[in-house]
Each structure stands twice: as C-alpha cells, then as structure tokens.
C-alpha cells in the first residue's frame, strides 16, 4: 500500500479503483511503461496508477517538438511531396506553441531552447543519411504484438520510422551517446520495436538505428546502428515483462533510491513515501 504524507500534485478525479487501473495496466505493456517500472516502481505508481501529473520539462517539450517536425518531414517524403525548410519551420512553430494542454515548466529561457531545437533539426536535415527522396516504409506507426502464446500481455507501441527494413528511432539528448552502451541502455526499446515490427509485418528487421540529435554548442547527429534483436535479447525482454506482470500482481511499488533520483521530478513525493 502506498501512503503519501502529503500530495503536492493533485491527481485528476479518479473514476476507477486502483485495482481496475492495475488490471488495465496488466493487459498491455509498452516500452516506456516497462522502462519506467524497471527504473523505479514508485515513480511508475505516481504516474500510471495514481495518475499524478507534473508540468512537462523543457527538454521533453523540445524533444516532442523536434519529433513532430521529423514526422512531418518523413510523411512528406513518403507521399512524395517534399517540404521546404520554411514549411518545416512552420510545423516547428506550431508544435512549440502547443503548450496549453501540457504546460511546460520553464526554468531556462524559452527562446534559447526554441533556437536549440531548430538548430538540431537544421543539422539533421543537413547531415541525415536518408536521402530527401527516399521513401520510408512507415512513419510513426502504432502497432501491437500479441504475446499471449508466451503467457505475456500484449505489447503496444509506436515506431518512429521504418526505412529499408531498418527500424529508426529519433532521440534528442544533451550528451553524445556512448556507442558501446547504447545497445544495453536501450534494450527494452529495441526489443519492443523489433517484436512489434516482426508481428506487424511477418518480417525480421535488418537492423535498428538510433538517430540522436545532440544538443551541444555545435549540434551534431550521431547514428548508432544495432543488429537485429537476438533470441537471447528476446528472452531477456520476456523475463522483464514477466517481472512487470509479477510486480503489478504483488502491488510492488517500492522506490529505488539511487543516483538517478537527483534529477527525478518526483523527489519530494518520494521522500514522503512510507
């Protein structure tokens, strides 16, 4: 049972019981939900079970706006109606301005951040390995995979881009990714994409790529290419989903105190947990 000494962030009015919510969370699993559960079960509880909300961070807003432009760019290439840089900037402006539904907690200068995001995109369009006329196979496609034959909940997710049988995921980050560690640190995501792709197409992916747009003084694009998901990775991934299901069944929502808590938006709520 989770008890909060005080609840600084008011949850939305709940129409479902905690058991109903957990039961629904057990029916399906996504990479983001699984990752959060593995990272910290209490944080998972705050977000998905209690339904508490926090203002969006500037980094998340920047990443979301950049994603929307990349989606528009890829869709235009797919339909054979390329967009000009001006058209793309208009998409960026609109995405950036969309802060009503999810307010952003601006602790940094908003204009500076907006410029950073656009510079990232300009760098990507200039340095992207994908030709402007190359036609993708799918763009931000929502797919699911039935894992019931493995005794697991259905896997759901959205794949950013599929190009020449390769699954591509866009990331914005403030640090240059370490190629040696990317395969491990993103394994939940890569396995999820691979399973979704295989289930949805009946084909095996030829590889998985992370296109990281790095927010440095001089922005850069780092492409990390990974091999298709191996059987060993799939087994590990299934074990992680098993742990997710077992944890939900046990109502196991204990915190995971550690270095990662320094930047956690739920720090104060967590300190009040007992």
């Amino acid at each position: 049972m989770i008890a909060l000494a005080e609840a600084p962030t008011a949850p939305a009015p709940r129409t479902r019981s905690e058991n109903q919510i957990i039961s629904e969370l057990r029916e399906t699993v996504s990479a983001s939900r699984l990752s959060l559960f593995l990272q910290c079960r209490l944080k998972f509880w705050f977000r998905y079970v209690a339904g508490l909300k926090k203002p969006k961070t500037p980094a998340l807003h920047l990443g979301g706006s950049v994603h929307q432009v990349l989606r528009a760019w890829n869709m235009a290439r797919w339909k054979g109606t390329p967009m000009s840089l001006k058209d793309l900037y208009d998409v960026y402006q609109a995405a950036w301005g969309d802060q009503e539904e999810e307010p952003v907690s601006w602790d940094e200068d908003e204009d500076d951040q907006k410029k950073v995001g656009w510079r990232l995109l300009e760098t990507y369009f200039r340095e992207s390995s994908i030709a402007a006329y190359a036609r993708p196979e799918a763009v931000e496609v929502a797919v699911d995979a039935d894992l019931s034959r493995h005794g697991l909940p259905a896997l759901i997710g959205v794949i950013d881009l599929v190009h020449q049988n390769r699954i591509i995921d866009f990331k914005t980050s403030s640090q240059t990714p370490n190629p040696g560690k990317v395969a491990h640190t993103n394994e939940v995501q890569t396995c999820s994409y691979a399973l979704l792709y295989r289930e949805a197409t009946g084909k095996r992916e030829s590889g998985i790529e992370f296109h990281s747009l790095v927010k440095l003084k001089n922005p850069k694009v780092v492409i990390t290419a990974l091999e298709p998901m191996s059987e060993q990775q799939q087994t590990r991934f299934f074990h992680l989903i098993e742990a997710y299901v077992a944890g939900l069944d046990r109502r196991d929502f204990v915190p995971s105190p550690g270095l990662q808590c320094v930047a956690c938006e739920w720090f104060n709520e967590c300190r009040n947990w007992r």
Binding site: Q68, R71, A142, I156
Partner: peptide, 16 residues
C-alpha cells in the same frame, strides 16, 4: 490528430 491514437483497439495508446 497528427499524433498516434490507435483507435481500432480499446487498449491504451502509448509511445514505445
């Protein structure tokens, strides 16, 4: 809506 909402199923949409 320009964002992913897999409406052919009742399950929660989520970004992977």
């Amino acid at each position: 809506n320009g964002r992913r909402r897999p409406q052919w199923r009742s399950r929660e949409p989520a970004r992977a």
